[in-house]
Design a protein around this nucleic acid. Sequence first.
DNA 1: AATGAATGAGTCTTCATTCAT
DNA 2: TATGAATGAAGACTCATTCAT
Lengths: 225, 225, 225, 225
Amino acid sequence: MPRRRANDPRKTPRQSRSRDTYDAVLEATARILETKGLEAANTNAIAERAGISVGSLYQYFPGKQAIFAELIRRSDAATAEGLATLVAATAGQDLATRLRALVHAAVAQQFARPRLARTLEYLEAALGADEALVAADERIVASVEALLRAHGHELAGPPTKVVARDMLWIAKGMIDGASFVGETDPAQVEARVVGALLGYLGVRGAGSGRAPDARGARTVRARSG
Amino acid sequence: MPRRRANDPRKTPRQSRSRDTYDAVLEATARILETKGLEAANTNAIAERAGISVGSLYQYFPGKQAIFAELIRRSDAATAEGLATLVAATAGQDLATRLRALVHAAVAQQFARPRLARTLEYLEAALGADEALVAADERIVASVEALLRAHGHELAGPPTKVVARDMLWIAKGMIDGASFVGETDPAQVEARVVGALLGYLGVRGAGSGRAPDARGARTVRARSG
Amino acid sequence: MPRRRANDPRKTPRQSRSRDTYDAVLEATARILETKGLEAANTNAIAERAGISVGSLYQYFPGKQAIFAELIRRSDAATAEGLATLVAATAGQDLATRLRALVHAAVAQQFARPRLARTLEYLEAALGADEALVAADERIVASVEALLRAHGHELAGPPTKVVARDMLWIAKGMIDGASFVGETDPAQVEARVVGALLGYLGVRGAGSGRAPDARGARTVRARSG
Amino acid sequence: MPRRRANDPRKTPRQSRSRDTYDAVLEATARILETKGLEAANTNAIAERAGISVGSLYQYFPGKQAIFAELIRRSDAATAEGLATLVAATAGQDLATRLRALVHAAVAQQFARPRLARTLEYLEAALGADEALVAADERIVASVEALLRAHGHELAGPPTKVVARDMLWIAKGMIDGASFVGETDPAQVEARVVGALLGYLGVRGAGSGRAPDARGARTVRARSG
DNA sequence: AATGAATGAGTCTTCATTCAT
DNA sequence: TATGAATGAAGACTCATTCAT
């Protein structure tokens, strides 16, 4: 429910002391969301967890929603950043290898704080878009698009942007699902996600140098059906 | 404020009058979730929308959470039911066709009430599992497993159950994403999802009788990377 | 500070039970304003004094300001009503006598709850006008206008309406002042106010049958100045 | 929240720098009261408007109430001063002329900052009397008393002090009222107030050299009533 | 069974005041 | 002396739940 006030932070803290307090609020909120969920994330609890008073909290954020908004912004910005970095760092390698790197990072993040990720996702939808959010999202999609173009995807099928988004949703869906169901081995998840992405692209993970079935990929015998 | 009481409905109403009231509460809740979101779904609003008094509401449900829980249960049960029916109804057809049928139904449901679906999903995670929920989930997975087995999947790769789950998460991720981003053409989404699922299974949609790139599938040229 | 919500009561209570609660809130507020002042009139205190819970208070009023607004409305309506009644009841009597009756009532009201009257006055200005308030004010002025016309005022000087307003302000100023300074004899105040009003109208209280100086009126010898 | 501390300023600043800061606080408060009202006059806003820090504010005033108190004191002192000066300056002129001068000043002040005047009045009543306030009030009344005595009022009617007070309240009532109702022409108001005062004193404004009805005074035909 | 008024704990937010720097 | 970050008590308002009718 969007409040009347904007969800932008009240003051951008420059001094390190302020910066610390600011970050403490965000981290406290993240911890509460992770451990007790959205309902437990009230301003008093956040302030207490951050080791400050409610009054101080309101000196940095105009309201509770703004804390959530900033948390989402940071999370999305970090993802965008990480993705771009990884895409750049793996330039020259083959597609499967590069995807594996990206998926590895995504899985790691989700498995670190599954509930937080899920809650922020819900909040992102509930709070409504925001310039910064849209920008981060664009960067994320752009990174994947760049990757696809580097491997010749633009030649066929739906627009690259659509394909990039689909890949992101596939990965997100599978990773969320796995963590929700309680899977414990990130490597297994990772392998299956990469398999799914390559499958979606119509590329069998041939170049990976190992049997496709080893961990993730699979084949369905063409039978009666 | 989540009470310790169970989330089971207070009584399973047999009489049709009671049944109507009970359903009215659920439908009212669904409508509010869809149109105004979780924050607006308070017991007073629900009762009013359902055309009854709060007191009556509490005659059928032990608390607000129980209404949500039942909504989720029904939604999941309906999905399980529908899936099983579709799988049975399409017996003998080829895999791609059968998947297309399933995905079609899933897309239709999500596009009908996107916000409701997303909110229930969040609530399902926030409220925690529940016998009935687990049961429904099992049935859903089982339907897909059956489908896979019918087409010879059990022979290779990860356990069929894991594959089934992955497929469900892939579909859910893509469909949610598409509706979130505001895609308007269900057919497009459907085609891409089917493509992704077949790709994941290592089956190129050859049997579908039309060019794979037409709507959903795509190929990546093997290049340098 | 006008709140976002309107200052109209939430529901106009028809049943006597509700009506009682509604009135209890208003009376409690009046009592607190009279005895402890505006700062002490918080919703918790009001509810407690009214013998109800805060929740109930909010079932009848959308907010604190609305309680004040209604209090003002009632006070102004009562004044308008009383004035109109008195003017009608004294028809046929001479002007001085009629004014005396009006002033008598005004003094009585102010002396009954001086602080309440003053606070409501402040709030009326702070809250800003309101249809009902304006209407009551019109009726009040109209009563005095009628009185003036009945005694032939319309023939000379500023518009009757302006004169009527002046008279009201004169009376209000003097009565407030007297009660503020702590005067204890209402009769004295009353006599002086009547004298001032007649003097303003250019009518010496000749017809009153007693020496003008007896209690209120006075004469200044025309001397050097 | 009224603390128990006295409302006296913390220190009477002698140095001009301190004096400036002190005055800046008072002026800032006055401006806020005038433009945004009492609710907006919080210490942070005052300090900001005064161009100082809250800390500094508390170096000069023991609390918020003390600022208001000093503002009232100054306002009343200025009124007392102005009145005394005007009375002295107009010595030898006739009563109507002298009253006109006083009323002119009063109207000018009220029309300059109507909301401020009204709010201070409310605060004066709410905060309760204070030595300095009482002293200023005595001086104000004394000025009017002196005026009356100079024109022979002491010979008849209620004590001169009472008459003086009445005159002050009449003027205040009318002027406040006029500004509240939104009258825009100070001259009109002025004329009517002078008329009312002379009428109260039993003096028709004969000496003023113009028709009494022209602007302010009026006559009521002695009719039946 | 149904009603809906009543409850009051809990939540968000403000702001007068203090105090470390 | 000045600063302004920090404090936390207090206040407005909501809403899940109960219960008298």
